[in-house]
Design a protein around this nucleic acid. Structure first.
Lengths: 203, 203
DNA sequence: CTGCAACCTTGACAAGGTGTAAGAGATGAC
DNA sequence: GTCATCTCTTACACCTTGTCAAGGTTGCAG
């Protein structure tokens, strides 16, 4: 039953899989507790077909998150992490992430935090975290950022602050512009950025 | 059916309610997806009795969280928020919160983030957030903290950073001591604390 | 263009969760 | 000791996840 994906016949199987993931991302983004049946229906497929591709609901969610994660990673890579001052690269990276995260507010805000397994979650965020860590480490080596806090902690903090900013926007407590500004300032402060432009976009 | 709690007979009803909440906190802390039946059993009560006191599973979780919240608020109030420099008061407050949060790691890490309603969640954290805001505002007024970021944002950031530190501990990626140290430093940096002792506990 | 393997679908089932209901029994307040 | 209040038992309807088997379609190889 399980499509073997590596062998003989996979044209329509691949198409089904893509349709399911597509529907999953779309539905879960507006209703994180959507049932497998609802996702199947939105994909124009039967519930059993979903189970033919994904062994459990959780694995389906994982695959959907991975898809979003790939999109985020692509946007980050397009931001040019290794060019220019680390501070600038980091801000570009934050903006790129914000744009992707802004496209899937509910999905990232809710689902990514109800993962059961801590190290599964860690693995999922790894590609994103790696890029962040690279920039942060570079900044620490060049002296742009303070080196007293460990890169791992700073990565976690940066991601968390990004989620916080997104949450404030979603809750309607901050405008997108204010949140981006507060996020920039806060991240730079935590990083101990020297000569913190403090607020390059403001007055 | 619903115990009226305000009128005539409430001795054993109150006792049942307390036992249920007690069991809920205890069980949910180790298994956030515990069923109502499991909670009822742990409380020495039937599932229907639980439903006699709490109309739905979600309201039960809310009540359990409120109980933990009260404990945290009590600990915070005992920390003496209005005495001494705001920086010291804030650090005392963080430690008090950490101690309470450390007692309910899973419950706070998981449950408090799968709340459905954003403003319900905001209300639940209100008592905690108010005390934080009071200290932060005091620090801003005395000039101990920088005033460029809004108190509301700083409150959200501080709570979030506390959750992050707790998460790193739970995941085994940081020791309690390291996490507390990183949390102190990070919060003070975001607040723009002047003369940041940077790390009063370390070397 | 025919065959066959891979895929999808229909239908049915078991297990477990939430929430509701009615009636009999136990318990505490007065 | 009485009676309202609370709890228990039993039963139900509904939804969701996950599994199974049998039959119908589709696409690729030859």
């Amino acid at each position: 039953m399980t499509p073997r994906q590596t062998s003989h016949r996979r044209a329509d199987a691949q198409r089904s899989r893509a349709a399911i993931l597509d529907a999953a991302v779309r539905l879960l983004n507006t209703r994180p507790d959507a049932s497998v049946e609802a996702i199947a229906a939105a994909a124009g497929v039967t519930r059993q077909t979903v189970y033919a591709h994904f062994p459990s609901r959780e694995q389906l969610l994982t695959a959907a998150l991975d898809r979003v994660s790939e999109e985020a990673v692509a946007a980050m890579d397009a931001a040019g992490l290794d060019t220019g001052p680390a501070t600038d690269a980091l801000l570009r990276l934050l903006d790129a992430s914000s744009r992707t995260a802004g496209r899937y507010p509910v999905l990232l805000q809710k689902i990514s935090q109800l993962t059961v397994d801590p190290h599964t979650d860690h693995d999922r965020h790894a590609p994103v975290a790696d890029r962040l860590r690279r920039v942060i480490q570079r900044g620490q080596e060049t002296g742009e950022f303070d080196g007293r806090l460990s890169p791992d902690w700073l990565v976690a903090v940066t991601i968390t602050l990004g989620h916080t900013a997104g949450g404030e926007i979603d809750a309607g407590r901050m405008s997108g512009k204010d949140a981006a500004e507060a996020l920039h300032t806060s991240v730079l402060r935590v990083l101990g950025a020297v000569a913190p432009a403090e607020d390059p976009t403001g007055e």
